[in-house]
Amino acid sequence: MSVRPTRARRARLVEAIMKVVTGACVALVIGTALFVLGKIVAAGLPGISLDFLFSKPGMGMRAGGIFPVIVGTLMLVALTAVLVLPLGIMAGIYLAEYAPRNLLTRIVRLSIANMAGVPSIVYGLFGLAVFVLLMHFGKSLLASALTLTCLTLPVVITSTEEALRQVPTDLRQAALALGATRWRAIYKVVLPAAAPGIVTGSILGLSRAAGETAPILVTGAAFFLPTLPNSVFSQYMSLPYHLYVLATQVPNVPPEITWGTAFVLVAGVSVVSMIAAAWRSVQRRKVKW
């Protein structure tokens, strides 16, 4: 009888200590994130002006703005979206609606999971060998967009499949019972119902793609270009690569230009994808079938 309270007290003490230790881990994570965000906002915001956003870099990128850089990034992302969305959504439909439960499907899933873990620089090598050289697209928007398509595909597939699985079977059956074919039921009923999830998942994937540097480094991003790209076979400037260049390749860049570029990149990529993620979780909770 007398042993138990001591042991219980010790257990209580260990629990308190471990709560502090694990809590400190959470605090560390949150602190790091706040530091990243705070530093970029504090140092980057002062450099932001309409002039910065809408003018060309000058004086060896040590002055002026980042207009062509922003435009190049947007063009790259748009082209990637055009390529990856149809493929990714169709593959997601395959997994959620058509795939039989067999070895082949298992291998497809394994491949998708594995693609998500392939290093981005390896995608860069692949894009260089296949799109730039073998297909003769050269270092270009198109070669980069195709490379980013491969890289983004797993994200789009996974979120499409997940969104489709949230749609109750009832709806499919109702459509089939009305004499709709399998595809009509999917296209007219299931896909629209899953659209919010697919859209936010795709935004998440595309914004990650917008922040990638390594794959575009070897497939088409330009160090500096005086003009905007005028076709999919042009080279282009891009925010993440530009930040890399400013931070490591060009000496004596005024800090507000480098930090301003970092700010625009983080605002464009991280904030957009966070809003998408938040919206998705709200949506998930709201839609009760």
Binding site: D170, L171, Q173, A174, V189
Partner: peptide, 10 residues
């Protein structure tokens, strides 16, 4: 066919 739970399309 009409199902057990109402299942209108969204």
């Amino acid at each position: 066919q009409v199902f057990q739970r109402p299942n209108p399309f969204p």
